[in-house]
Design a protein around this nucleic acid. Structure first.
Length: 271
DNA sequence: ATGGGCACCTGGCTGC
DNA sequence: TGCAGCCAGGTGCCCA
């Protein structure tokens, strides 16, 4: 589900409720997530104060006094801040209970999400070490995208969804960014011109930033930390709009599968 | 090195 | 109404 804007929206939503709070308990109701939650994790984090709520790509990083919790929302996960006595329902898999009387609750029907812990530098964690630069940082620029697209024959849509090359862009925003850049999703990455890579970088940054401003995109189950949906859905230009008229030129939006994922584009606006 | 396909899991919707 | 089949905001891993 969640791509960078949804994870960032979640981060901003939880930050004021968790930073400075002490972990009273970690209650694991269902350890069978993407990776099994380690049995000794509750004992390791109990009593520690949260020092920061960060994000790297689609991972949330809760910095504790001794170590960092790495959370991933997978396809269907969400985190909410709730009163400590809020009743649990199906697919609520763990609670991080704070001394404030609130808790951070993870719900994830498909259980593709994860809860991991590292005592060292989180950036050196195997899952984070090889990630590409943050798309909203200055290091993600036209030069960078130009360089990594050379000698790559994959379709550009698949390339921008590869987290070793570009981070934070998932299935929705890949189609949206390519629409904004005027580039067809099936184009071979290495055949993009210099101008096109520059346009694509700008499009990715703009789409992600605008989606963050709107609180992300809610298609099905995504909610922010306060339970509110994201409002970027109404700004979607192509995603899940196949057959509907392009908002720019009225040509029907097309859909096809690319690497087993649905791709949407306007055959007129994108070349 | 690169890229393709599969796996992990549940639930909602479609069509017979 | 029931059920099979398909689809869904991700991504690590195995193989060619």
């Amino acid at each position: 589900m969640p791509e960078l804007p949804e994870v960032e929206t979640t981060r901003r939503g939880i930050e004021p409720h968790v930073v400075g709070r002490r972990v009273r308990a970690l209650l694991v109701h269902e350890p069978r997530l993407r990776w099994r939650v380690e049995a000794d994790l509750p004992a390791r984090v109990a009593g520690q104060r949260v020092q920061a709520a960060g994000r790297r790509a689609k991972y949330l990083l809760l910095a504790l006094e001794r170590g960092t919790l790495l959370l991933h929302l997978g396809m269907s996960g969400s985190l909410r801040v709730l009163p400590a006595d809020a009743p649990r329902d199906r697919h609520d898999h763990f609670d991080l209970v704070f001394d404030s009387g609130e808790l951070l609750r993870f719900n994830d029907p498909r259980r593709f999400g994860s809860l991991l812990f590292t005592s060292g530098d989180p950036a050196a964690h195997p899952l984070l070490a090889a990630l590409a630069p943050e798309p909203l940082d200055d290091s993600f620029d036209a030069d960078y995208l130009w360089r990594v697209t050379r000698s790559r024959r994959v379709a550009v849509k698949q390339l921008i969804m590869n987290s070793r090359l570009v981070v934070g862009v998932g299935n929705i925003y890949a189609s949206e960014a390519l629409f904004r850049a005027g580039i067809r999703p099936g184009r071979e990455a290495q055949r993009l011109s210099r101008t096109e890579t520059a346009r694509l970088v700008r499009a990715i940054r703009t789409v992600l930033a605008n989606a963050v401003k709107a609180g992300g995109t809610t298609l099905r189950d995504y909610v922010g930390a306060d339970g509110a949906p994201g409002y970027f859905r109404r700004k979607l230009q192509v995603y899940e709009r196949s057959g509907q008229p392009c908002r720019r030129c009225r040509t029907p939006i097309r859909r096809r599968l690319q690497g087993q994922r649905a791709t949407y584009w306007c055959p007129e606006c994108q070349k």
